[in-house]
Design a protein around this nucleic acid. Structure first.
Lengths: 195, 195
DNA sequence: GAAAAAACATACCACCTAGTACGTTATGGG
DNA sequence: CCCATAACGTACTAGGTGGTATGTTTTTTC
């Protein structure tokens, strides 16, 4: 990675963290270049606008991050429903970077920007859809092998799980870390009753 | 209601709508006074700062609104779990003011402001807690009369339901109105398995 | 109906915002 | 070594931001 690529990815990483904590609109370019020690000329050389930087963050920082935390854990050999439960548990309790009071970077951005910017909405929709499909696939296979009742809809269950994650990340902002345990406990009960 | 009270509540109502659509930080005082045809002097006579106006919106617009839509439906004589399901259905599909792509005003504000402003966080926490307690109370009574299994935790279930609402309001922003039906259908199944 | 206070109106300010203009330095291929 | 271009640096702008200073009008109170 050359020096130029390094500046670019430094901007993306630091801006991602600032946006995670304060929101996209509340994170000014001036603050980004101040914390990264990158000048304005360099910033606008790498990104023609703030929006372009925001979209780059979604695609180059959030996509890989969510694949690692949200999808990869679904690929190993554990059985249903424990596989989904463990994925969720790792997501909520196992990531040292996430701060409960700040929620989830992707969920936050959906909340803030989906209604305001179609390009953001599209990029973020893809992110959620990918996760939901990965969960749905796991559920479908479990249904085929008889681990889940045949009258249930994997697509619908997957959506219910995704909404639950989105919601608990938001409620964590007001209730703090303790509520993650309540959610996980209830999720476990819900998942067990699928079979 | 005198003329002065009228200006004040006009500001609160219009600002509430603007914030609902664009977010709190993205809604400037200049835009508020432009759409309400209220001058800046009048605005700052009624509210000493933008923050004070925001808190007034939570307490004077959101509190009553959420009591009507979220708590009152729990007080009539229907049986569990249909009572909770009907409340949620009314909340998601029965409110003509809410726009699916914009989510829920209260949830949006929690997402945006809880990490940034303690006063906002406190006011919004109260709002959620009240709702959660109302749901919990209904569940506890149902448990006492044998409609819900005794080994389940009403508090935990109530929290699970609140997170689900928060989440589906957020996912509605990317998936549109259709996903509300999926959520309600899965919620119904979840509630039925409580007894 | 006059004094007092509430309610509103206008003009302004210091600061922040995304973005630009234009100059300078670093780098890699011939 | 040259020089084209990539990469970066500095200074600036036009418009928006929350908030204030200072006035004028309207309403209440006696």
């Amino acid at each position: 990675m050359g020096k130029a690529d390094n500046t670019r990815s430094t901007i993306l990483q630091k801006a991602f963290e600032l946006i995670y904590k304060n929101g996209y609109q509340a994170t000014s370019i001036d603050v980004i270049i101040a914390t990264t020690h990158v000048t304005k000329g360099a910033f606008f050389y790498h990104f023609k606008s703030k929006e372009e930087m925001g979209l780059a963050i979604i695609k180059e920082v959030m996509y890989p991050g969510m694949a690692a935390a949200m999808i990869d854990p679904l690929l190993d050999g554990k059985d249903l429903p424990d596989k989904i439960y463990q994925m969720m548990k790792g997501l909520l309790l196992g990531n040292p970077f996430f701060i409960v009071e700040y929620g989830c970077p992707a969920i936050n951005l959906i909340e803030e920007m989906s209604p305001l910017n179609p390009a953001f909405k599209d990029a973020l929709t893809q992110l959620v859809v990918k996760w939901q499909h990965a969960i749905e696939q796991v559920l479908t296979r479990a249904q085929q092998s008889g681990n889940i009742r045949p009258d249930l809809s994997p697509r619908q269950i997957a959506f219910f799980i995704v909404t639950g994650y989105s919601g608990v990340r938001n409620m964590g902002k007001v209730f703090g870390p303790g509520c993650y345990d309540d959610y996980l406990s209830e999720l476990k009960g819900y998942l067990q009753k699928l079979s």
